[in-house]
Design a protein around this nucleic acid. Structure first.
Lengths: 341, 341
DNA sequence: ACGCAATTTGCAAACGATTGCAAGATTCCT
DNA sequence: AGGAATCTTGCAATCGTTTGCAAATTGCGT
């Protein structure tokens, strides 16, 4: 009955709880925040009451007063190639790791997908919303310039993407160019001499991978690598790959795919065309997603360390939140030789 | 110069802007909110100033005052099998679609992964934070009871998962039991008579799929389906599958995998054992993820309509936010016959 | 020119938590 | 016991926006 009476009272805010505990709101606030200024006994009493009534301080109010929200924004700009990009395995895995890392550091994660062409100031909007303490941008897409602009006036931002000499925003990413070199070297070592790059080279990361491969082709005195542009969504890509193969398969004996996902699709199409891998055609991918182990034959690829990437992003962001000025972080790719090259 | 002078002023809040515009904060608020109560000319002037200074009202403050945040929480409870579940293709694809749908409805998405066993009141914490207007729970994991408890006192919650007769929380999900029936029927039609279920049946969805398959086996007078429990993370699963096959392969001629991901791994292991699919062993998966088309041979599976699921989740949640009491939504699965059964 | 209705605006009190400052209560030392 | 030093607490302002109410302005008809 006594419990009944107390439980019946609705505790909506710190003031209600203060009344119950017979103290002032300020004391409750301090107690719940675990500050040392409050007497152990009162603190315990307050904590007990809070638990009993399932009360938790309102984060919005707290955020407003403290001018920090405990939330990090994660934004994925979708290029022209909007669709599917977010369900792309790579980004999703990265997102998963980010969620882990941020949680571990006590932050929440607010996810936003944006289509920059429909919404020019997507980045300022997010930052200016007052809802987030900092922002992680996943993928530069074709928004390099806008990101640069914002970086000048806003500190707590870190971007996953490609590092370009002299850029002003803090970026974390794999050394794509080096990765491209590794892939090309492997294809050539496996016997290929006429290479093609499968993927859309207008995306910065992909362009760098292509450039790396081209470095090697040139150094080896091989003919320039031809490009076979595709979209990223599986349905369109399959079709486009089939067309590319129909038109070009006879002119090449090695394919460097921008992504494992593309490589896997390509493998399927090659099989459909009756082209043997690695016999008639060498193939290399990029990312080392789980699927790379499961294709038949398993895929030779270039690994990106996604977990390290996520850790880097969060670590740099926290340092920037603390006011530090941080350099970009470029991670080394690693060649993983399996059976396709 | 005149522009210089104005641009130099930092506009941090609605009051600053009001001063610039020569009106009161209230008017600025109304103007920016697009209310009809404010004169068209003043509104335009205010909007112009806001644009010029890149000012946006603080969402925290607005949320506090209006008692709604415009944010929907999406929480993924990770079972004992913590790892990897979030990068599971299925959940990630669902998450992508959710992000789309919520954005379209003008909501932001706050993502939280939780490990219920480390943190008993994960759900109340999220709800009580004051940061979200409603919550979508992705997967019941082993938290059915806790979710039921919460559902009694909190309206705006919708859960992705399995529907159980008489449950009190609003759920959206595929009819797993029916899906299980479809898969078993197909395996049997393809010639299998001694079936196994690959996956952890303590997860509710999986248990229902298993039960469905068992329905059919019983009806057909076949021996009971044996279960081959596994974890979900690819590394552990591979190993476990290999062990299962070593021990049991000779006793069975058909496998119903709880997930396409597991089916694909299983296919790889079968190949390693030299067991022909579908010759010596029929195989069916569940989900119809992109990978199902890319395995060799391509996978027979049961499709879940993920996009429809996401739409359902958001639609029901919005209705509940509006105060409606909604029923659960059970989506029909669809058999997709490819080459493994 | 006057009165009444319809528009626009301003005022000030919320929303719920935090925190500098000062007052009140304890402790401790002599 | 007296007084200084240390702990605890309460007070009240503050974060930035929204909104009910009332005041001020405008428009309109006569």
């Amino acid at each position: 009955m006594d419990e009944d009476k107390t439980t019946r009272v609705m505790v909506r805010n710190i003031t209600d709880l203060a009344r119950l505990a017979g103290v002032s709101p300020g004391t409750v606030s301090r107690a719940l925040a675990g500050k040392s200024l409050v007497n152990t006994k009162t603190r315990e009493k307050i904590e007990a009451l809070a638990r009993e009534h399932g009360f938790r301080p309102n984060q919005m109010a707290s955020g407003l007063r403290r001018q920090k929200t405990g939330v990090i924004g994660v934004v994925i700009p979708l290029g022209h190639d909007s669709r599917q990009q977010i369900s792309d395995s790579f980004f999703m895995t990265l997102l998963g790791h980010l969620a882990d890392e941020l949680t571990r550091e006590g932050y929440d994660l607010m996810l936003r997908r944006v289509v920059p062409e429909d919404d020019a100031d997507w980045l300022d909007r997010f930052i200016g919303s007052g809802m987030i303490d900092g922002v992680i941008v996943i993928g530069q897409s074709d928004q390099f310039d806008r990101i640069e602009d914002v970086a000048d006036g806003y500190g707590p931002m870190v971007v996953w993407g490609n590092h370009t000499e002299g850029q002003r925003h803090c970026v974390v990413g794999t050394d794509n160019r080096l990765g491209g070199r590794l892939a090309a070297e492997r294809l050539i070592a496996a016997g290929a001499t006429r290479l093609a790059f499968l993927g859309d080279t207008t995306a910065m990361e992909f362009a760098a991978r292509f450039a790396g491969a081209q470095d090697i082709a040139a150094r080896m005195g091989l003919p320039p690598i031809i490009t076979l542009p595709t979209h990223l969504s599986p349905d369109r890509a399959s079709e486009e790959i089939a067309q590319h193969l129909a038109a070009r398969a006879s002119q090449i004996d090695g394919i460097f795919a921008a992504t494992d996902t593309l490589a896997a699709l390509c493998l399927t199409e090659l099989r459909a065309c009756g082209i043997a891998v690695p016999g008639d055609m060498k193939l290399a991918g990029f990312d080392d997603l789980p699927i790379a182990r499961q294709t038949v034959p398993p895929l030779t690829t270039v690994r990106q360390d996604i977990a390290a990437g996520a850790r880097g992003l969060v670590d740099l962001l926290l340092r920037r939140l603390a006011g530090e000025k941080t350099e970009s972080l470029v991670l080394p790719p690693q060649l993983v030789v399996r059976a396709t090259a």
